[in-house]
Design a binder for these strands. Structure first.
Length: 268
DNA sequence: AGTACCACCTGACGGC
DNA sequence: TGCCGTCAGGTGGTAC
């Protein structure tokens, strides 16, 4: 579930509660979550370091350390960050814990183990290595067109492809296509100038509104404007726009929710 | 270049 | 009650 808006909220949370603090001790509770380094190596790179800045690219959160290097966090489907003070509040599925001087703790939580925690020497090199495209947030129309340019695939898998544009996953791709009234299987070549503009506009709007309303938080879906698909991702749910029925299909290998009436097949 | 499929991983849920 | 299959979905690998 953590896609760009959620990770942006995590970043702000980390900024508020952990930035400027010095990591006194690192506890790796489950070494499987580490991205290609041992718990000892990871501890050595983090302990005694101060968190000086944060940066997000797509679904990745990067935290700069004083004296060089970065902590890298990826959240998979079920990852989260939790700050707590009392030992008793250590949340379940806490995989890596950072204990700061002064008694505050930051937990990287992940029920399923699909995310990764690691280190990198350089943030830009990390982004290159992971072959991430430009970050979706604040991507201007020209850059958006460039990113999608010359491709033939269907619009949904293109949106979800992190090497094309970084940050959009299954849930937000569906929302963007729903708002832009585009069928998920529409070929990029069939979008036309108008379709591309609409897609870009809705991508920007949905990401911005989602961040503003606290994506990923408990009552997020209740705070969304009327007419969003996100709270109604259920087969047979009523489309808030036309009263039709929300249906499912497979696109880009993922279950896709859409309204066949509002998002007609191209040419159909 | 694209697609298709598998694996990783755990919890929820439906069927029997 | 409890076992089993399936699904959720981000990423990465491989085969075609």
């Amino acid at each position: 579930m953590p896609e760009l808006p959620d990770v942006e909220i995590y970043r702000r949370y980390l900024d508020e509660h952990a930035l400027g603090k010095t990591v006194q001790q690192v506890r790796v509770q489950d070494a499987r979550i580490l991205d290609g380094l041992s718990p000892d190596a990871f501890r050595q790179r983090l302990e005694g370091r101060r968190l000086t800045a944060s940066r997000r690219h797509g679904k990745h959160l990067l935290v700069e350390l004083d004296r060089g290097g970065w902590l890298t966090l990826h959240f998979g489907m079920t990852g989260d960050l939790v700050v707590f003070e009392n030992e008793a509040d250590d949340p379940p599925y806490d995989r890596v814990r950072f204990d700061f001087a002064g008694g505050r703790h930051l937990a990287y939580v992940n029920r399923r183990m699909l995310g990764r925690v690691g280190c990198a020497d350089d943030a830009d090199a990390f982004i290159d290595e992971h072959e991430l495209g430009p970050d979706a947030l604040g991507l201007d129309l020209q850059a958006f067109k460039t990113a999608l340019g010359g491709r033939r695939r269907d619009v949904k898998s293109a949106l979800m492809d992190q090497s094309t544009i970084a940050g959009i996953g299954n849930i937000y791709a569906d929302e963007i296509l729903y708002q832009a009234r585009l069928h998920p299987k529409t070929g990029l070549g069939d979008l036309g100038e108008e379709g591309l503009k609409r897609l870009h506009h809705e991508m920007c709007r949905i990401l911005a509104v989602s961040i503003e309303r606290g994506a990923g938080s408990e009552r997020f879906t209740e705070r969304l404007p009327e007419g969003w698909l996100l709270p109604h991702r259920e087969k047979g749910a009523r489309c808030r726009r036309c009263g039709g029925s929300i249906e499912t299909m497979k696109a880009g290998g993922r279950t896709t929710y859409f309204c066949p009436r509002c998002q007609p097949e191209p040419g159909g």
